[in-house]
């Protein structure tokens, strides 16, 4: 068994890398969810140009390889657009990488959101029109809460795909778990190739555990939502009985 373990020092360096990976994932996730919502709703807009732009975004974000997108954002964009948007120039690799992964996630996520919105029965939207809710309120209070049940499982899978994608930043010069692994590898070459193999097995397991944690979080969310939808006991919700008694 001990043959398969690393030293505590090595584990602590890997944990530093894992933290960077999770931070990168969190940034990409936030951007990805925001883009998914905007573009997914945009795909269903009544305005033709909004639909067109959203469609183009989805096709580009999904069509391009994430590693190529990453290299374009990290290497080509700062030079190409540096004069127009000086902001992109001095950005650390991790920021540009988060944007690349966020765009990638947004492309796939938008299609998830679009599909889930389309799956909500038409009568629900008609009821919101009859109640005179405005389009934003329709989405926020009626459509998206119902769509969430459909969105969560594929979003969980997508988040794991993005976690896998974070490893790419190491080859574009960013620091993450994979870069930490590379650093360890070069320091332990004396230990021989067997040791390096063990190192990579450990790293794979760390990624696997992170993916399982993400998976469980989403499962937990699904269950919480299902509970909300299912038979809800009267006393569990609003404290209405008392208010009513006082009011009438």
């Amino acid at each position: 068994m001990e043959d398969w373990l690393l030293s505590p020092n090595q584990y602590s360096s890997l944990m530093v890398g894992a933290r960077a990976t999770l931070q990168l994932l969190a940034q990409a996730f936030v951007l990805g969810v925001v883009l998914s919502l905007i573009v997914g709703v945009g795909r269903l807009s009544e305005r033709r140009w909004v639909r067109g732009v959203s469609f183009a975004f989805v096709e580009l974000a999904r069509g391009i390889s994430s590693i190529i997108l990453l290299f374009i954002l990290v290497i080509a964009i700062p030079i190409l657009l540096g004069d127009i948007f000086p902001w992109v120039r001095g950005q650390p690799v991790i920021v540009m990488a988060s944007i690349a992964l966020g765009i990638n996630m947004g492309g796939y996520g938008a299609e998830i959101i679009r599909g889930s919105i389309l799956s909500i029965p038409k009568g629900q939207t008609e009821a919101t029109i009859a109640l005179n809710l405005n389009p934003t309120q329709r989405l926020r209070y009626v459509v998206l809460p119902q769509a969430m049940r459909i969105i969560l499982p594929p979003m969980g899978n997508l988040t794991i795909e993005i976690l896998k994608g974070t490893a790419l930043v190491s080859v574009a010069g960013g620091f993450d778990l994979m870069r930490a692994t590379g650093n360890l590898e070069s320091s332990m070459l004396a230990g021989g190739v067997i040791g390096v193999t063990v190192l990579y097995v450990n790293v794979l397991v760390i990624y696997f555990v992170m993916a399982q944690v993400i998976n469980s979080l989403f499962r937990f969310g699904e269950r919480a939502l299902d509970k909300r939808f299912q038979q809800r006991e009267g006393r569990a919700a609003l404290p209405i009985a008392t208010t009513h008694a006082a009011g009438s």
Partner: peptide, 9 residues
């Protein structure tokens, strides 16, 4: 659920 990049290494 593990990155293909790590699998390549």
């Amino acid at each position: 659920s593990t990155p293909i990049l790590v699998q390549m290494f």
